[in-house]
Amino acid sequence: MMDIPDIILFQRLPFYINYEMQAFIDLEYPDNKILFSDLNQWNGFHELLFDEDRRIQVSKGRQLKDFAKGVLIRIPREVHCFDGAEREGFVKEVNARAKTEHLGFRLAGEDIKKQISGIPPLLYLEKDVFKIIIKKAQAQLVEMPSRQFGLDNLKADGKSLDVLITWYITEQSAVTNWKVAGRHVKIRLPGLGIIDPYRSSKLLDESPVFRLIDHPLPMAIYSERIEN
């Protein structure tokens, strides 16, 4: 299995943690680095004023009000010193604290690390397997990529993050081995409503910035037929 580095999100933007270089490195622009030594230290935290538009740390002496998309990020010191086997429990603990205290960042757990690094979750829909393209909110058939459908406007299953879809199926007869006539069935896609930022944020009463981190999609999603 490929070794994926630890990833931290400053607002929506992913940086990976390079323990050897002692730096946060922009996942999309690797020349863009934020050194640990450049962070302000205060009361058990490392702080940075982050300019989301320019993807950089704001130089010392500037103020938050000077930037339309500036955010103060406070990182517990142990976050960029920790490089151990018990990562998942640590990530959950730190993220719970970051959410409660509005610290401006999240750590990526194992599934999110894979997704951010370009490994898509798979949706098993009846006999078909789809890749979930999160950035485009699309499901793309693995065997035929041109066959795809959008996920952000599907019908909600009540007051939940599950969504419903009507699917056309053909089934093999166990007696005659012939395919029976195609018909429509209703399918539930569990949790996929999280991809719709407007509806999911309203439902969860949360900011859309960290919704996929706080409510992650698993790497394998199994649909459920609810109506024949």
Rank of each mutant, 00 (worst) to 15 (best):
A174F: 12
P190D: 04
L217S: 09
Q138W: 08
H80I: 06
D6R: 10
N40T: 12
V79H: 02
A174D: 15
A220W: 01
K65L: 11
N153M: 09
R77F: 06
P218D: 08
R188V: 15
E52D: 12
I73H: 04
A68I: 13
R62W: 03
K202N: 15
N43R: 10
A23C: 08
P208A: 07
F67H: 10
L154F: 03
K135R: 10
P208E: 07
G150F: 10
G109P: 02
K127L: 15
Q115L: 02
R188D: 07
G182P: 10
R147K: 14
V142A: 08
E20L: 07
Y168E: 14
A156S: 14
D53H: 15
L9H: 06
I134S: 00
G118V: 12
W167M: 08
P208K: 06
L203H: 15
Q140W: 07
L103R: 11
L164E: 03
I4A: 00
K60F: 10
F105N: 05
K159E: 09
K60W: 10
L103I: 14
L49F: 03
D111T: 09
K186R: 15
L141R: 13
P121L: 11
D51I: 00
A23H: 01
R77E: 14
H46E: 13
T170F: 01
L141E: 15
L151G: 02
A181G: 07
V142G: 06
A174W: 13
M21H: 08
Q41N: 09
H102V: 09
Y222W: 13
S59P: 00
